[in-house]
């Protein structure tokens, strides 16, 4: 049992609750109609297009979250510009941060 400022966390209790929840879900599932299988409803639907062979269907990593990248295009453009891969720039960033810390700790921080 792990106490936090506003409560506690007990994984064993959580697992117990999870098991109970799964059990309840299973019982509710038991109320369903047993004869309802097959037919159009059980097939995957892709805007009415033909479904390619399931065995060959796989979305490559490069295409996942395409929309997210597109939405944050401006941010990612800046990030790509920063990550040049040139070792001199790495050192320059280090020196830049050191300089910033100098300003903050030595000048601003003298309160």
């Amino acid at each position: 049992m792990l106490h936090t400022p506003s409560g506690y966390w007990d994984p064993l209790l959580w697992i117990l609750a999870l098991i109970v929840a799964i059990l309840i879900a299973y019982i509710i599932r038991g109320f369903g109609r047993k004869d309802y299988k097959g037919g159009e409803q059980s097939k995957p639907f892709l805007s009415g297009m033909d479904i390619p062979d399931e065995k060959e269907l796989h979305i490559r990593a490069g295409n996942i979250y395409w929309g997210f990248m597109e939405g944050l295009e401006g941010y990612y453009d800046i990030m790509k510009k920063i990550h040049t891969g040139v070792v001199n720039d790495y050192v320059a960033w280090f020196l830049g941060v050191s300089a910033l810390l100098f300003i903050v700790i030595l000048i601003v921080g003298v309160t």
């Binding site: 990030m79 790509k80 990550h83 040049t84 891969g85 040139v86 070792v87 001199n88």
Partner: peptide, 10 residues
């Protein structure tokens, strides 16, 4: 040349 040695980036 360090500008050409950057197969690793982004």
């Amino acid at each position: 040349d360090s500008r050409k040695i950057r197969r690793l980036r982004e």
